[in-house]
Write a protein that binds this DNA or RNA. Sequence first.
DNA 1: CGGTTTATTGATTCCCGTCAAGCAAGGTGG
DNA 2: CCACCTTGCTTGACGGGAATCAATAAACCG
Lengths: 249, 249
Amino acid sequence: MKTRRKSPVNLTTTDQHYCSIDLRLKILGRLPFFEGLPQNAVNSINQRFNSIGYKSGEYVYYAGDIAERLYVVAEGKIKLFQHGTNGRNVLLDILSEGDFFGNLTVLGTFSYPDTTQALTPACVLTIQSEGFGKILDEYPSLAIKTIQVMEKRLIAANNQVFKISSFTVEKRIAYTLLELGKKLGVQNENSLLIDAPISREDLAEMTAATPETVSRVMKQFQNNGLIDTGRLWVSIKNLEELSKLTEFE
Amino acid sequence: MKTRRKSPVNLTTTDQHYCSIDLRLKILGRLPFFEGLPQNAVNSINQRFNSIGYKSGEYVYYAGDIAERLYVVAEGKIKLFQHGTNGRNVLLDILSEGDFFGNLTVLGTFSYPDTTQALTPACVLTIQSEGFGKILDEYPSLAIKTIQVMEKRLIAANNQVFKISSFTVEKRIAYTLLELGKKLGVQNENSLLIDAPISREDLAEMTAATPETVSRVMKQFQNNGLIDTGRLWVSIKNLEELSKLTEFE
DNA sequence: CGGTTTATTGATTCCCGTCAAGCAAGGTGG
DNA sequence: CCACCTTGCTTGACGGGAATCAATAAACCG
């Protein structure tokens, strides 16, 4: 069963990876977050955002920095995590196009509770929290949209707590792979490729496990034909069977 | 070291525990959630809420019920949890006066992801999600307040993930007791009483542990003079030392 | 004062983390 | 294109922290 091969994950986006001005205007308008707004509103909002490009591995901000900006992912993937005690971190989320992070509103000075890092080359739009507050005042429908997105994220975070609290490692890993498939999956021939360079360590940090254990469990999944995997990539071959693993006791 | 005695937690609120109409009007206006709104707005909003009283142990809604209402705690404590596989649940939060739960906005029909149950006799105000949507339209400042509250909750949920993922049981329990102290604490003579009937099982469900382990760890805390505890109550005697336990590796 | 719920305590088991060594993949420079 | 190096993955042996199972004791309630 030789399945190891070159990573099928697309890593080579255009090298010029600070987002060009005209590109970002188009992107902003298409973001699900701003959909439904009239075009002139989008233009107006767009003018108040700046864009920044990040190379893979670069940090957007660190936990503890003063939280005064809101960010929106325009392109690429951003890791959101908290630093663990010894050097083992906890990976809370992987954000992609249209997701926001950072500090939404002005509620006194406080610090970011987490660190954000580009997992792939990425383009990020950003605005001062204060400025975003003004936008919310101007476009109340955006505030409601924001609430809806946060509602979903809170539910997801609670599910995460649930998962880690009551699943075995095997179930946690299966569940996490399925989540990643839903969020970052790209359908290839006969398998669902997770379109981001996810390492064993990343998975360990998402599942409250160790890289070694993740490796062992994934090997087993691979032997059972549930997934296909290699260095920095995973692909789900049998989604149904993998789902079954997360179901019953 | 005989510390076992009658529970100091106040359980006997007025027995008539469906909230009276005039009481709830006063309560609504004082809720931190609605503060800052002009009085006539509060009156108008108040008219659109109903109030329901719950006896200790009663359920407000179950996970899977169709999510069409928003709730606000007016009095008492509400447990928010998810059902585990075998009968061991995961306790996500304990809500008290001013906290909201349920479904905020209308985003298609979907089900509550969690179950809510009165931990003490409680009075809860409720409104259809649709009606709350209208209120948000009318009072945009409320939408921003809502965003801020959700932002805090999301951060708390992420911290919860972090805690469970990277702390030992001892640290998790210490951390959870401190959280409860902050949220539900009442300063008594020389200790901070957690003002809710919290069982070993509740704590286990909050810390991804078993009641037996919680019992053992708390016994140790008690022997070290950090806490004082009995059946369905806990009091923090030495906050500083307890905090130290959660700090470094 | 019995009956019920909650908490304690002990003995045993096992999942998974830790430590350590070796291997495969990819990138780089000559 | 190959030697080399870095980074990520695999695999095994071992130990420990906490779950499980089980029985007793305390607290509370009618």
